[in-house]
Design a protein around this nucleic acid. Structure first.
Length: 421
RNA sequence: GCGGGCGUCGCCAAGUGGUUAAGGCAGCGGCUUGUGGCGCCGCUAUUCGGGGGUUCGAAUCCCCUCGCUCGCCCCA
C-alpha cells in the first residue's frame, strides 16, 4: 500500500463524528461542573516508571501494551495508557493533596498497543474522574452516581451497573491462596489460559469467558467469604447507599480489575450492545496508589469511560444546519454577500455562504439540502436597490424584501426579521 | 501474541478467466444569471489494496505482503 494512511488502530474523527463527540463532551462538562469537579490536563507522555509503579509491573497493560521508547536524552518515556497515574502524579508534584479533597476530571487520548477490534483501538479516548482524599462509602457512591447519571442523560439505555468489592490487599492475598489451592485440585477442568493464570494472576480466572471454567467457578470459594469484617461492612454500606439513590446494580462476585491499584469498591457499567468489549465505564477505589507513587497516604476513588464505546451506543442526531443560507450571484452581489455573511456571523448567526457562483437554481438546491430554514437571496438587482430577499425554505411563507445597504447601518432590522434580537 | 471473515470510484455494489470494469448514492457542470426540494443530459476507476507468478488473455486462479474487521487475550 503506497498510499499514506494512519497507523493501525489510530483513527481519524471526521466531521460526522466530531459533532457527536462535542455533544458528549459538552454534556459531561456540565455534569462535572454541577458536581463541583475541576478539569486537570496532564501530558500524554510520561516517564515509563510512573506506569510501571502505578499500574503494576505484572499487568498486561504495563507488560505488553505500552508505547514506550527512549527519547534523545535516553530517558524511557511512555505514551500514557490510562489517566489515573498521571493525575495522581500531578497532584503529588504540585502539592494539591495538602489543599483538601481534590475532585478532578480529565479527558483525552490514551495509547495501548493491542490488536484492534470492536470498541478497541490503539489510540482511544477516555473521560475520567478522580476524587482524591475522600475515604467514605458515601464518596464511592457519589462518584458512581455521577457516572450513572451522565450516561443516562446522554440517552443511553440498557446499561448494567456491576458492583463488587475487592477488599483490602490482605483480604485479596488470603483469598488468592484459598482460590489457588481450590483450583489446583481441579486444574484439569480449567481451560489453557486459566491454567497459565493460576500462577501469574489467579484472580483473573474469575472473569474468564470460557464456559466450562465459568461453570466450575460456580462452586469455587468467593472473595466475599474471605473479606474482613471491616471490608464486608463497608461494602454493605455502599450497597445500601446505592439502593437509597435508586441506582440499580448487580453484585458480580467475579468482577475483578486489571490494574493493580484497585481495592474495596470496584464497578463496571456494561452494555449488551457493545459486543466483546462490553464495559463502557469502569472504576473503583484505589487507596494505596498515591502513597505508592511517593505521595502522602491518600484515599481515592475514580472511574474512566471509553468515548469510542460510548459513541458506539449513541445514535443521536445532531443538527448542524445553518441559520441561513446565502444565495448570491453576480459580480456586485458576490462581493456584497461576503460582507453580509461576515456581518451576520459577527451578530451570532450561522451563515452558509454559497461560494460557487453557480446558477440560482443550483444554489437553491443546495440551500434546501443544507437544512437552513431561511435563504437570503442577493443578486446584482438587489444590490443596486439596496435590498436583500428573505425566503423561507421550509413549508410555505411569504418571500419578503428587506433593505440592506450597509451592514453596520441596516443589520438591526434584518436581524429582527430573522428572529434575532 | 493466537484464530476466523473480508479488500472493485468518497459511500453502497454487479462482475468468479475473454477484455470498452454494470448500476445506485454523493459530487461537479449544463438545460436554467434570477428562484429550490422534481426531471433530463453530461462528467467523475487506463483500473479492481500492493507485489510476484500461471495463461494467448486475470478484478476473476496460485504465492507473498499490506490493510480492514470480528473473536481470544486484555481493558475503558
Amino acid at each position: 500500500m503506497s498510499q499514506l494512511q494512519s497507523l493501525r488502530g489510530m483513527v481519524d474523527l471526521l466531521p460526522e463524528q466530531t459533532r457527536h463527540w462535542q455533544n458528549v463532551e459538552a454534556v459531561a462538562r456540565e455534569h462535572f461542573r454541577r458536581a463541583g469537579l475541576e478539569e486537570i490536563r496532564t501530558p500524554l507522555l510520561e516517564v515509563t516508571d510512573l506506569f510501571a509503579r502505578g499500574i503494576g509491573e505484572a499487568t498486561d497493560v504495563v507488560g505488553k501494551e505500552m508505547y514506550s521508547f527512549l527519547d534523545r536524552g535516553e530517558r524511557s518515556c511512555t505514551l500514557r495508557p490510562e489517566g489515573t497515574a498521571s493525575v495522581v502524579r500531578a497532584a503529588i508534584q504540585h502539592g494539591l493533596l495538602s489543599q483538601g479533597v481534590q475532585k478532578l476530571w480529565y479527558s483525552g487520548p490514551m495509547f495501548r498497543y493491542e490488536r484492534p477490534q470492536a470498541g478497541r483501538q490503539r489510540q482511544f479516548h477516555q473521560i475520567g474522574v478522580e476524587c482524591l482524599g475522600a475515604s467514605s462509602a458515601r464518596s464511592d457512591v457519589e462518584t458512581i452516581a455521577l457516572a450513572w447519571d451522565l450516561l443516562a442523560d446522554l440517552g443511553l439505555t440498557g446499561l448494567t451497573l456491576e458492583l463488587n468489592t475487592l477488599g483490602t490487599a490482605d483480604d485479596r492475598k488470603a483469598y488468592r491462596n484459598t482460590l489457588v489451592s481450590w483450583l489446583e485440585e481441579r486444574s484439569d477442568q480449567l481451560d489453557a489460559d486459566s491454567q497459565k493464570r493460576l500462577t501469574s494472576n489467579p484472580l483473573r480466572i474469575l472473569d474468564s469467558k470460557n464456559p466450562t471454567t465459568q461453570a466450575l467457578l460456580n462452586d469455587a470459594p468467593t472473595l466475599q467469604a474471605a473479606l474482613s469484617a471491616d471490608s464486608a461492612s463497608r461494602f454493605e454500606e455502599v450497597q445500601r447507599l446505592l439502593a437509597q439513590l435508586s441506582i440499580p446494580f448487580t453484585h458480580n462476585t467475579r468482577l475483578v480489575r486489571g490494574l493493580d491499584y484497585y481495592g474495596h469498591t470496584a464497578f463496571e457499567i456494561t452494555s449488551q450492545q457493545l459486543g466483546a468489549q462490553a464495559t463502557v465505564c469502569g472504576g473503583g477505589r484505589y487507596d494505596g496508589l498515591v502513597q505508592q507513587l511517593g505521595g502522602p497516604a491518600t484515599p481515592a476513588v475514580g472511574w474512566a469511560l471509553g468515548m469510542e464505546r460510548l459513541l458506539l451506543m449513541l445514535d443521536s442526531h445532531v443538527n448542524t444546519a445553518p441559520d441561513v443560507y446565502l444565495v448570491n450571484r453576480g459580480d456586485q452581489a458576490e462581493t456584497a454577500a461576503l460582507g453580509l455573511a461576515r456581518a451576520l456571523r459577527n451578530a451570532g448567526l450561522a451563515v452558509e455562504l454559497d461560494g460557487s457562483g453557480a446558477a440560482f437554481g443550483k444554489q437553491f438546491k443546495r440551500a434546501d439540502r443544507s437544512g437552513a430554514p431561511l435563504a437570503l437571496v442577493l443578486g446584482d438587482g438587489e444590490v443596486t436597490q439596496g435590498l436583500v430577499r428573505v425566503k423561507p425554505l421550509l413549508g410555505e411563507g411569504e418571500e419578503q424584501s428587506l433593505p440592506w445597504r450597509d451592514p453596520a447601518m441596516d443589520l438591526p432590522e434584518l436581524l429582527k426579521s430573522l428572529g434575532c434580537h
